[in-house]
Nucleic acid binder design. Sequence first.
DNA 1: CGGGTTATTGAACGGTTATTCAGGTTAGGC
DNA 2: GCCTAACCTGAATAACCGTTCAATAACCCG
Lengths: 216, 216
Amino acid sequence: MAAATLAAKAPEERRGRILRATIAVVRERGFAGTRVTDIAEAAGTSQGLVLYHFGSLAGALAASLTLLEDEFYEELERNLSEVVGPVPRLRHIAELGAGYGPAVGDWRLWLELWVRAIRDDGARAARESLDNRWRGALRQVVDEGLAAGVFAASDPKASVLRLAALMDGLAIQLALAEPGMTTGKFTELWWQSAVLELGISPAGEKTGPAGGRRKK
Amino acid sequence: MAAATLAAKAPEERRGRILRATIAVVRERGFAGTRVTDIAEAAGTSQGLVLYHFGSLAGALAASLTLLEDEFYEELERNLSEVVGPVPRLRHIAELGAGYGPAVGDWRLWLELWVRAIRDDGARAARESLDNRWRGALRQVVDEGLAAGVFAASDPKASVLRLAALMDGLAIQLALAEPGMTTGKFTELWWQSAVLELGISPAGEKTGPAGGRRKK
DNA sequence: CGGGTTATTGAACGGTTATTCAGGTTAGGC
DNA sequence: GCCTAACCTGAATAACCGTTCAATAACCCG
């Protein structure tokens, strides 16, 4: 019956596919370079459908931001639950930032988001939400460590702010493939700051970049 | 006849005016939102002239980047020569980053540059050059302090990298007007990191977040 | 099974914008 | 003073791209 057209899944499925395609295109071409055609092509649908579901290109971009948020939350949760104990967890964060996966592409996406947030309210809200969430996670790990007595910080709030900002700053260089900046270096540099900020004792500091390291 | 047209200064003057206008427009509208018309309007000339001098919109944007570099160099030089001694100089850098002037707008321009650098080679080169210059200045101050014995760092190179990255990271929040981030907080947060990284002795750390400032 | 609503398409439309161009104006060497 | 080349302009051109639209197809419900 009714010779199967290419795809006739639930409209929700198509909608989601378009959203995912949008993110993929933005990742590759940036917000400014993303056209309706690109999205349609990446999603395997027509331009018309993109507009049908989201009203406009801007609408599709905006909707994709909330998907981005959701996925970020999810992944963050999943990632941090893998590891227990303040020090390993902090270390894990250091490595997460560098990203063993396609992190460079992800950081580029964040850069795009920052710039878009300058002028687009939806993007501003998304990036603020993302940032708060991220900083909250960091904050939580720090509090955990303070409570356990393995971290020491005179002003934890400021330390968290600085560590979060440092990661963003380092990420810029990673995203732009600054010569000399690698994921390994990223992790190392950030971790050293964390050690400094939080007075982590050598015992807890298990993973050295190379060679011995001590404190006193 | 031919009543005097508005302006017939040297073509170099117009060229420069267009370049300056381009930067101004990019600052306000971003690279993506900058149109030839905007530049012409801001420069008080015709669209034709913009293209006449620079060949294309992309050409004008590219040319404006080198002007941006030049002006940055100049201003950096001028600014840092004002202050002597490692500690005051470092402190000055902390305040420069926060910017007592239109720094928010400037940081937004840097954000724009970063994103453009992802895909545009000219922008990439410009930002790398700018960044090296900036980091070099920081590095110089740090070396000065190490030589004078007022700073102590086990890995100065890493410290410089981190301090530079931290400034970028904090700048993002400043540029995006993150609630709670002010120029004062910016300076304070960065300065504390500098103190921590470089083991600045309390004597040198003259400026509290508020209160008087003096030197030995 | 109909009939109406929802999805989906591809082509047509229209606005915006970079670029081209033909024609003037200015400046400076001769 | 005049001639040529550099400068400058505003309008015409043309391409690109978001959006609209009329026509189908699929789905759902009674």
